[in-house]
């Protein structure tokens, strides 16, 4: 078994504001327990920096259980680090070697401007949802819940897609900074359910339009998004989005 304590060399992206120039800075950390999560390791770095009178590294996080989608950084070139289906907050230090050098960078995309250090602005994802990632039903106007039967396997597939936590790792990992996995997950969830049918075409048209407008890249089916997705969302959803959009473009009366 590896030692319970490791030391690390970190190269962390420091950038003092959206318009400032950033650079990697080197830090050395000793006595890192391998039971720590990656974020707790950064906590240790920050406590150390604070005590030394330096500015701690800014990074987003909230739930620390891999569900809120707030955390995220690129570790040695891989969004959320080397473990499959794991957010940064659920990545534990036992997956690293004593003396290893780690490069930690923010999620990079034109649509995700850096705010500070590892913190980026992902509001473009919210804007895409505003374009149609919903079912238009006012509070109070819903029929009885069992009035809309949904085949179990459809509900399961919809749930697979709905598991997206909106962390943006797919964008960060995509060589083209495309947001297709994110968009397709929402489109798929709602396309698979009967409740989503009335707005199906309009939704596909307007969400894709919003995605393009926000400056994300174009999908070239590289599959990197699927490989880093902490929730294991499949690119089959992207195929479904392609289908939905094609269908809507060719067959519907809707304008996006």
């Amino acid at each position: 078994m590896a030692a319970k304590i490791i030391s690390l060399n970190l190269k962390v992206w420091r950038q003092n504001g959206p318009d400032k120039k950033g650079a990697l800075e080197n830090y050395r950390l000793e006595n890192i327990s391998i039971d720590m999560s990656f974020l707790e390791m950064i906590d240790v770095l920050n406590e150390k920096l604070t005590v030394e009178g330096k500015e701690p590294v800014a990074f987003d996080h909230d739930c620390r259980e891999g569900i809120c989608g707030m955390c995220g950084a690129v570790v040695d070139g891989i969004a959320h680090g080397p473990e499959k289906e794991t957010t940064l907050c659920q990545l534990h230090m036992r997956h690293f070697q004593d003396g290893q050098t780690l490069t930690i960078e923010p999620f990079r995309a034109k649509a995700f401007p850096v705010i500070k250090d590892l913190v980026v602005d992902r509001s473009s994802l919210d804007i895409i949802i505003q374009a149609g990632g919903f079912i238009s039903v006012n509070t109070g106007s819903a029929p009885d819940a069992n009035g809309i039967p949904v085949p179990q396997h459809k509900a399961e597939q919809a749930m697979d897609a709905a598991a997206c936590i909106g962390c943006g790792a797919c964008v960060a990992a995509c060589p083209n900074a495309a947001a297709m996995l994110f968009v397709s997950a929402k489109i798929s969830q709602l396309a698979l359910l009967p409740q989503g049918a009335p707005e199906r075409e309009k939704r596909a048209l307007s969400m894709v339009q919003a995605m393009d407008k926000e400056g994300f890249g174009n999908c070239t089916n590289e599959r990197e998004c699927e490989a880093v997705c902490p929730k294991g969302i499949s690119i089959r959803n992207i195929a479904r989005l392609n289908r939905e959009f094609l269908r809507a473009s060719l067959l519907s009366d809707e304008q996006g």
């Binding site: 819940a145 809309i148 919809a158 359910l193 989503g196």
Partner: peptide
Amino acid sequence: VAQGVPFAR
């Protein structure tokens, strides 16, 4: 359910 919450079925 009307909003598309994928409850277990």
